[in-house]
Amino acid sequence: MTTYIPSITLPGFLFEQPAAAILFPVALGTGVGFSVRPSETQKTYLALKQPPYRPPPQVFGPVWTLLYASMGYSAYRAWTTGMSSLNPVTVELAKQGATLYTVQLALNLIWMPLFFKFKRPIEATVDIVALTGITGWLTYVWGQVDEIAGWALVPYLGWLTFATYLSFGTGYLNDWNFHDKERPIATKPKNTKYVDEKAK
């Protein structure tokens, strides 16, 4: 059972207006991305051994921007639909979801610094497993409030599942230690963007 905890939940005005609801997670995600220095992040990403099906680093920025926007839209839909309902159960579910949403957003924002800046793959993987679980529960809770709000979180939940695989796979392939696996990328091998692959 989820509980609404006002003291750790984002204020209502961040849910009430569509522009604020959508732009807030986009701005936070972008800010965190730039705070860990994209060039250093890309260097770390390319230098580590990667599991199969990992996308090129250029994919992550656009994908996350879209996912943050859909997350914010879901928050707007669920909050405004729930808080205007005459059903007290629906109101309570909307408020409980707001707490879950705040917690998942915090977990989302700390993953990148854990993984890339502090190079802590174990902690980052624990974080993203918790994030995926909470987001799954949030999708269920807000889906009861507003069907569109629930469906708007599905791409995000799917991407988190894939990102969990990447986080675990990268940690495992690098013995859960990123510090001694990095090496300078002087030139890119032919036909590949990844230093752990040999040019054919």
Rank of each mutant, 00 (worst) to 15 (best):
residue 7 S to V: 15
residue 8 I to P: 05
residue 10 L to N: 11
residue 12 G to F: 13
residue 14 L to V: 06
residue 17 Q to H: 11
residue 20 A to K: 14
residue 21 A to Y: 00
residue 23 L to A: 03
residue 23 L to D: 00
residue 23 L to S: 10
residue 24 F to I: 07
residue 27 A to I: 05
residue 27 A to N: 01
residue 30 T to F: 10
residue 34 F to A: 01
residue 35 S to P: 01
residue 38 P to N: 02
residue 42 Q to R: 13
residue 43 K to L: 13
residue 43 K to G: 09
residue 47 A to C: 08
residue 48 L to V: 11
residue 52 P to V: 00
residue 53 Y to M: 13
residue 54 R to F: 09
residue 56 P to K: 12
residue 56 P to E: 05
residue 59 V to M: 12
residue 60 F to I: 05
residue 60 F to W: 13
residue 61 G to P: 03
residue 67 L to H: 00
residue 67 L to R: 00
residue 68 Y to L: 05
residue 68 Y to H: 06
residue 69 A to F: 06
residue 71 M to H: 09
residue 71 M to Y: 13
residue 74 S to N: 09
residue 75 A to C: 08
residue 76 Y to T: 01
residue 78 A to D: 10
residue 80 T to R: 02
residue 83 M to K: 12
residue 83 M to A: 07
residue 86 L to M: 15
residue 89 V to Q: 12
residue 92 E to M: 08
residue 93 L to R: 10
residue 94 A to K: 06
residue 94 A to D: 05
residue 94 A to C: 06
residue 97 G to L: 10
residue 98 A to D: 11
residue 98 A to K: 08
residue 99 T to S: 15
residue 99 T to D: 15
residue 100 L to S: 12
residue 103 V to D: 07
residue 104 Q to N: 12
residue 107 L to Q: 13
residue 109 L to M: 05
residue 109 L to Q: 04
residue 110 I to M: 15
residue 110 I to T: 10
residue 112 M to L: 15
residue 112 M to S: 15
residue 113 P to T: 05
residue 114 L to Q: 09
residue 119 K to R: 14
residue 120 R to T: 09
residue 120 R to M: 14
residue 121 P to N: 02
residue 124 A to P: 01
residue 126 V to E: 04
residue 127 D to V: 06
residue 127 D to L: 02
residue 128 I to H: 01
residue 129 V to S: 09
residue 129 V to P: 04
residue 130 A to H: 04
residue 130 A to N: 04
residue 131 L to Q: 00
residue 133 G to P: 12
residue 134 I to R: 04
